[in-house]
Every structure is written in C-alpha cells, then in structure tokens.
Design a binder for these strands. Structure first.
Lengths: 117, 117
DNA sequence: CAGTATCCCTATGGATACTG
DNA sequence: CAGTATCCATAGGGATACTG
C-alpha cells in the first residue's frame, strides 16, 4: 500500500511511511545513482526482486510523488523512471542513514549482495 | 524478527533492516529525547502501541545492540531502557529523515497524532 | 519489453486475558 | 509494574504463468 496521509507521531514516522517496503529505498538509490532507468534495468540492478514487487513498489513511489513514470508509446514498449524533486531530497536525507548502515555492516561483518549480471 | 546479518545491498539496506518495524524509530526517538525510560513511560509516550508490540520491538532493538535494558530486582518490578552508543548514532542519522518527514507532513497536510495522557 | 493475473505462505501486528 | 500467553486478521511478499 502507498503511504497514508497521517496522522503521524513525528517527521521520522512520516518519512518511514513512504520508504517502508522491502525495495523502496533501494529503488530510490538506484535511480539517484543512474538518473533515468528503464524497468528491465531496475530489475537487473535489484537482484532477487520479482516483477510483481518491482511494479508494485514503483507504483507506490509514484503515488507518493517520489518517482515519475514516463511511458513511450512504442513497440516494443519503453517505460522510464526517474526521481522527482521530492525523491531527490528524500534520497539526500537517507544519506546519513546509509553511512550508519555501512558502519553497521563492518561491525557485524555482513556481506554485500553479489550482483549477478 | 530482529535484523538479519546480511547480505545487504548497501548501507541504507542494512540500516533500514534494524529500524523497520512500526514502532522502532519512535522508540529510539522517545529514548533519545528523555534519556532513560521505564516500560510504562514508553507505553504512554506511544499512544496506540500494544504491550505485546512494545515488548517485542524493544527486545529486537536490544538484540540488535541499539537499546540497553536494565532490570531492577524490586517489588514492584522496575525495568529501565536507554539507548546504547549505536542507538544514539542511529538516531542522529535519522535526524535528516525527520526533517524531510516534517516537510512532507506540511506538504500533504497530515495531522499529528494526538497525545492523550 | 513491460507488465497482469493467480495462488499461496508467512511475518507483522492487533485484542484480550492472565501472572510473578 | 512489567510483562506472558493466546488467538486472530491482514498485508507483505514470493513463484509462476500469461499478454498487448
């Protein structure tokens, strides 16, 4: 489900609401890194995601105004995704969390997901 | 369930893993604000949380090394919770997200949860 | 290529009652 | 006070097959 419209306890609550979902922060990250991405590119960038989940989370991000979706009426079909301004600023707000997470990975000796091309 | 030990895609992934759970970020916030809190105080600070959920999420935070739990062998029983160093630094990393969330609340006109004492 | 449409399982979370 | 113990509903997520 897309994020609710409140009520929220605080800003963290409101922010977590739109990023909660197994793949959302990773999609934001992917889009922030590459700019524009097509469906299949995102799929390859997120090893393990199913088509259903990818579509679903993209639609919710779109509904929450973080991602813009553009359909090109061609054959074969082409759809491009990119961050909106709000998506970009959310990603920037997530940066500190990313740094903390890297430190945690080091601390507990976590592995990184192997990117199988 | 407490956080896994990897593998993770990136730092965001690793960080989100320990904060995902409806009440976790709010518990961290509450503890950061007040320092030491007892069970019943946390319960009052999080309107709507059930005892089961509060216990569960506190235990998971403890297991992940973000919260320290101290039991005082008294009658009536007293248990105090406080952030560990890692909990404090995670909270600091969440600050930027909180700012973004407040801005989002303003944007969509979300209400704040009414704190019923 | 970029999705739908199903089916199905589990984790998450909520309500309530009870206890040392 | 600070929890357990149950029971239950739902949403999140996964696998697979099909389509314009």
């Amino acid at each position: 489900m897309a994020a609710r419209r409140g009520p929220y306890f605080c800003g963290i609550d409101a922010a977590m609401d739109v990023v909660s979902g197994k793949w959302k922060s990773l999609i934001l990250w992917e889009l922030a890194e590459h700019g524009v991405r097509r469906f299949a590119q995102l799929r390859r960038g997120l090893p393990g995601v199913s088509e259903k989940m990818l579509v679903q989370q993209l639609r919710e991000l779109e509904e929450d105004g973080l991602v813009r979706r553009e359909v090109f009426p061609e054959v074969p079909p082409r759809v491009e995704y990119e961050l909106t301004g709000h998506g970009v600023s959310l990603n920037e707000a997530l940066a500190a969390l990313g740094v903390w997470g890297v430190e945690r990975m080091r601390r507990i000796g976590a592995e990184k997901v192997v990117h199988t091309p």
